[in-house]
């Protein structure tokens, strides 16, 4: 029942943390790293609120014992902000009123960013598919879909921003 050291990069910053055996990444992020943007929702992989990027791939941090991300590069919602400037997706969520209570928003944006990272101009159907694992109980999804499409349109107009995002 020994704790062990786990090291990873969190939003570009090197971390080395003493982890209790099997502690979930979502708890480590929130309670040991202070990165509370990532939410702990269902603990089942059903709601997507805990979505983070592990080595560029969207994964569910409630289903990952932290030992398994040793040596990985982790990006959370805190890491999509650059120089205190919101990400295009975050601006779009604000503009489209795609956030109500906000609990799902971090996961939605990380899932949407995973889509835009590989498909910068997705169809509406591709957006719906990309967000199919993220539950929102407030918005009815339409403003969220509109926000992701709007962010993609903004990125298309600003190729430099797209490269930086």
């Amino acid at each position: 029942m020994k704790s062990s050291y786990v090291s990873f990069t969190l939003n570009g910053e090197e971390k080395e943390l003493l982890i209790e055996p099997g502690r979930r990444l979502v708890d480590v992020l929130r309670e040991q790293c202070g990165a509370t943007g990532t939410k702990n929702g269902c603990g089942q992989g059903s709601c997507g609120a805990c979505t983070v990027h592990i080595d560029g791939v969207a994964m569910l941090s409630c289903l990952l014992p932290a030992e398994l991300v040793d040596g990985s590069e982790i990006v959370t919602i805190e890491g999509v902000v650059r120089n205190r400037v919101l990400h295009v997706l975050q601006e779009a969520f604000l503009a489209q009123a795609a956030t109500q209570c906000g609990f799902c928003t971090a996961g939605m944006i990380m899932a949407a960013k995973a889509l835009l990272d590989c498909d910068p101009s997705p169809s509406r159907q591709a957006v719906i598919e990309a967000l199919s694992g993220n539950v929102c109980r407030c918005t009815g999804y339409e403003p969220i879909i509109a926000a992701v499409l709007a962010a993609a349109a903004t990125l298309a107009k600003r190729p430099a921003a797209a490269a930086a995002a």
């Binding site: 791939v57 994964m59 289903l63 995973a114 598919e129 694992g133």
Partner: peptide, 12 residues
Amino acid sequence: IASFGAPAVRNM
């Protein structure tokens, strides 16, 4: 694959 889970689940 398309009918299986959601993207993050398919990644894991």
